[in-house]
C-alpha cells in the first residue's frame, strides 16, 4: 500500500512538472508566432535571418527593431505581473488580490507620472518611481486592512478606494502636463505599441532582480499559507517575510507598469489559471505563472496586432475580451467538478 501510495504521490508531481514544461514550450511557440506574424508576415526562416543577420532589409528593420523587442518586453511584463499577482494573493491570503485590484498599479503609475512631470528629461527614472509608488501603496493598503490578520474584504475595499484616489490624481496630471508626458506612450496607454529595446533594457534589471528573488520564496510561502501562528511556530518570521514579499511584488509590478502602463487582469487571472492547472503549491504555482503570464500577454498582443486590417487594438483591451470569458469558463468547469 505504501509503495502504491508513493507512486501516486510521485506521479502527480511528475504530471505537474510535465504540464509546466508544456506551458513553457507553448510560450516559446507563441513567441515565434509573435515575431513572425503581423501586418507583414514572415516565415520562421526569414524571421531568424532578421534576428541574426544585420542587413538593411525590411525584414531586419521590422523584426529586429519592432517585433523582437516588443515580444520580449511583452513577455517580461507578463511574467512580472503574473508573479506579482501570485505573491500578492499569498501575502494577503486572498484570491481577489492582484496588482490592479488592490491599487498597486494605480499607486505605481501615480508616482510614475510624478517622476515624469518632475524630471521630464530623465525617462530612465520611471521604473524607480513606479516601483516606489507600488511599494508604498501596497504597504499602505496592507496596514490599513491589518488588524490581527488581514481581512479579505477590507483589503479589496481599501484597495478600491486608494485606486480611485490615485486615478483621479493621474487624470489631473494628464490634463495639466500633457507635454511632459509625451515621452512615455506605452506607460500612458496601457499598450505595447512602440515599445523598443530601450524600454526593455530599462526594466530588465528590476525585473530580473524581482524574478530571482522569487526563487527564494516557494517553500516559505507554502508555510505562510498555513496561517501566521502556524508559520511562526514552524520558524518563519511572518512579519518580515511579508514585507519582503510586498517589496518583491511591487518591484515586479512597478517594472511592468513603467513599460506597459495599466495592463489589468494578468496579475489576477494568471495565478488563478495556474492554480487550476497545477494546484496551490508555490513550487509549481510560480513557474506555471511565469509560463502563463508570458504566453498570455504575447498572444493577446499578437491578436491585437493582426485582428484588424488597419491599426491595432491595445493589449489591455484584448486581454479583457479574451481573458475574462476564458477565466469564467475555467471557474465554471472547476465548480462542475
Amino acid at each position: 500500500m505504501n509503495k502504491n501510495g508513493m507512486r501516486c504521490f510521485n506521479s502527480s508531481s511528475t504530471y505537474k512538472i510535465t504540464l509546466i514544461i508544456v506551458l513553457f514550450i507553448l510560450g516559446f511557440i507563441a513567441m515565434i508566432a509573435s515575431v513572425c506574424l503581423g501586418t507583414m508576415s514572415f516565415s520562421v526562416k526569414e524571421s531568424l535571418h532578421g534576428i541574426f543577420v544585420n542587413d538593411d532589409s525590411a525584414a531586419r528593420l521590422i523584426i529586429w527593431n519592432v517585433r523582437l523587442p516588443r515580444t520580449l518586453s511583452g513577455g517580461l511584463v507578463g511574467i512580472c505581473l503574473a508573479l506579482s499577482g501570485c505573491i500578492l494573493q499569498g501575502v494577503m491570503r486572498n484570491h481577489l488580490a492582484s496588482p490592479s485590484t488592490i491599487g498597486v498599479t494605480s499607486g505605481a503609475s501615480f508616482v510614475g507620472y510624478l517622476t515624469l512631470v518632475a524630471f521630464p528629461g530623465y525617462y530612465h527614472l520611471l521604473p524607480i518611481g513606479s516601483i516606489t509608488g507600488g511599494f508604498f501603496t501596497t504597504l499602505g493598503i496592507y496596514l490599513l486592512a491589518y488588524n490581527k490578520g488581514v481581512s479579505p474584504v477590507k483589503i479589496i475595499l481599501s484597495g478600491m478606494a486608494v485606486s480611485t484616489v490615485f486615478s483621479a490624481f493621474n487624470d489631473m496630471i494628464r490634463s495639466f502636463f500633457p507635454e511632459k508626458l509625451a515621452n512615455a506612450t506605452g506607460f500612458l496607454v496601457g499598450s505595447l505599441n512602440g515599445v523598443a529595446w530601450k524600454n526593455l533594457i530599462m526594466i530588465l534589471p528590476y525585473a530580473l532582480i524581482g524574478i530571482l528573488l522569487c526563487l527564494f520564496v516557494p517553500s516559505k510561502m507554502n508555510i505562510l499559507m498555513l496561517g501566521d501562528e502556524m508559520a511562526n511556530s514552524l520558524g518563519v518570521r511572518t512579519e518580515s517575510f511579508r514585507l519582503f514579499l510586498i517589496l518583491v511584488s511591487s518591484l515586479l509590478a512597478g517594472a511592468a507598469i513603467s513599460v506597459a502602463g495599466l495592463i489589468n487582469f494578468v496579475g489576477l487571472i494568471v495565478p488563478h489559471i495556474a492554480r487550476l492547472l497545477v494546484g496551490s503549491d508555490y513550487k509549481y504555482l510560480l513557474p506555471a505563472s511565469i509560463a502563463l503570464g508570458y504566453m498570455l500577454i504575447i498572444i493577446c498582443d499578437l491578436i491585437g496586432r493582426i485582428v484588424l486590417p488597419v491599426g491595432e487594438i491595445s493589449v489591455s483591451v484584448v486581454l479583457s475580451f479574451v481573458g475574462a470569458p476564458f477565466f469564467l469558463c475555467l471557474l465554471r468547469n472547476k465548480e462542475a467538478k
Binding site: 501510495g5 504521490f9 491570503r93 499559507m225 498555513l226 496561517g227 501562528e229 502556524m230 511562526n232 511556530s233 514552524l234 520558524g235 518563519v236 518570521r237 494546484g279 496551490s280 503549491d281
Partner: peptide
Amino acid sequence: KLKELAKKIAYLPQVHNSPSDIDVR
C-alpha cells in the same frame, strides 16, 4: 532563533488554515 525553537516546541492552534488542494503527506 525562530527556526531553532521550531525544532523544540511545536504548536497547534485551535483553528487551522490550509490550502484546499493539499494532500495529507
